[in-house]
């Protein structure tokens, strides 16, 4: 057992974990932050994406002890301080960028990381950036559209409603 301490969504937390405990399980099982999802066991699906010190990270691919001392951001901390949806979340709702919602936390966290490094990505850049996030429901159309809209681009011309 090891003691880990970190800041999660701005709050300091700590816990006793085994060396092999993944960051995803620490968030879900120790902190009950179940918005971070686990969709695979090979680091491929991106349902578990969180931010660690501002970088997007697959939390199933990182040990909790590796995040000791880090600033961690999860989907639960994304809304505006008044509880309203942030720009990316709003765009996902506005453009129907989610269906079952299982991939959604990872998508939103990846989108946030993308827009931080590239505030006006092209369609191709978005599609390429989402390489590590699988969505089985949406066919990606409305996810890509939502991210373009969240970056302030006009998506009115994109085919279909």
């Amino acid at each position: 057992m090891a003691q880990v301490s970190m800041t999660v969504n701005g709050k300091s937390v700590s816990g006793d974990v085994e060396g092999r405990t993944l960051l995803s399980s620490f968030l879900r099982d120790h902190l009950s932050l179940t918005g971070t999802h686990v969709g695979c066991d090979t680091g491929q699906c991106g349902a578990c994406v969180v931010h660690v010190n501002g970088e997007s990270v697959k939390s199933c691919n990182m040990l909790a002890v590796e995040a000791d001392g880090a600033e961690v951001g999860t989907i639960e901390g994304q809304a505006n301080p008044d509880g309203s949806l942030n720009v990316i979340q709003q765009a996902f709702q506005e453009h129907h960028g989610l269906q079952c919602g299982f991939c959604t936390p990872g998508m939103v966290m990846s989108a946030a990381a993308l827009l931080k490094e590239n505030p006006k990505p092209t369609e191709a850049e978005i599609r390429e950036y989402l390489e590590g996030n699988i969505c089985r429901c949406t066919g990606y159309h409305n996810i890509v559209k939502a991210i373009m809209a969240a970056s302030g681009q006009d998506v009115g011309a994109i085919a279909a409603e």
Partner: peptide, 8 residues
């Protein structure tokens, strides 16, 4: 969507 987008 609101609950899915906020991890709830």
């Amino acid at each position: 969507d609101v609950r899915f987008l906020t991890g709830a």
